[in-house]
């Protein structure tokens, strides 16, 4: 098998589109991507429909539920409130980029599994991406920061308790156990 080495070419949009087109290049999960996008295409739809990265979910398309959260240049953002064309040049990470095929789950993913911080799994990738950014900080974020970040996501299944436990576990693993207050 000959594996291509050039930028990955997103599937051509299969439709006539009455608006301008743009050639955008960005990095998705470490891989260079070149895609032709219409102005109005949302980043969430670029990822899901053109690049096949359906782990990023869409729950409200007005920025409240957080299911579509991805990392853009290292920080969590709503991919439903970002135009694909705005992501030109950006480094985007999705849940698919956290652990490669054949690799074990990453620490954040493992924490959600071990703490039963998920049920239907639909909101989970968003939570996992926000938590990944938290564990990637230079120092352990304080409780207030963690609470603030988590409030940017809706979960309808768990009641949040186990999600908070999962985030604590992931932070403990990254920064060492939290000192008692």
């Amino acid at each position: 098998m000959n594996v291509g080495t050039g930028p990955r070419r997103a599937q051509q949009p299969p439709l006539p589109e009455p608006t301008a087109w743009h050639e955008v290049s960005l990095t998705v999960n470490g891989e260079p991507v070149a895609a032709q996008v219409e102005s109005r295409l949302l980043l969430s739809d670029l990822l899901r429909q053109r690049l096949g990265l359906t782990g990023t979910h869409v729950g409200c398309e007005h920025g409240v539920c957080g299911a579509c959260t991805v990392l853009m240049d290292g920080v969590p953002v709503r991919s439903c409130l970002t135009l694909a064309v705005q992501a030109a040049g950006a480094d985007v990470r999705t849940v698919e980029g956290l652990a490669g095929d054949g690799e074990p789950l990453g620490p954040v993913q493992r924490a959600f599994h071990e703490q039963h911080g998920m049920q239907c799994g639909f909101c989970t990738p968003g939570f996992v991406m926000t938590c990944t950014a938290l564990t990637g900080r230079a120092e352990r974020p304080d409780e207030e920061t963690v609470a603030d970040e988590l409030s940017g996501h809706l979960c309808r299944c768990t009641g949040y308790q186990n999600i908070r436990a999962a985030v604590r576990q992931a932070l403990d693993e990254s920064f060492g156990p939290q000192e008692a207050e």
């Binding site: 957080g66 953002v77 603030d148 940017g152």
Partner: peptide, 12 residues
């Protein structure tokens, strides 16, 4: 500013 929306919103 820290009371605007959520961090994921403020990042953009």
């Amino acid at each position: 500013v820290e009371r605007i929306g959520h961090p994921q919103i403020r990042n953009r």
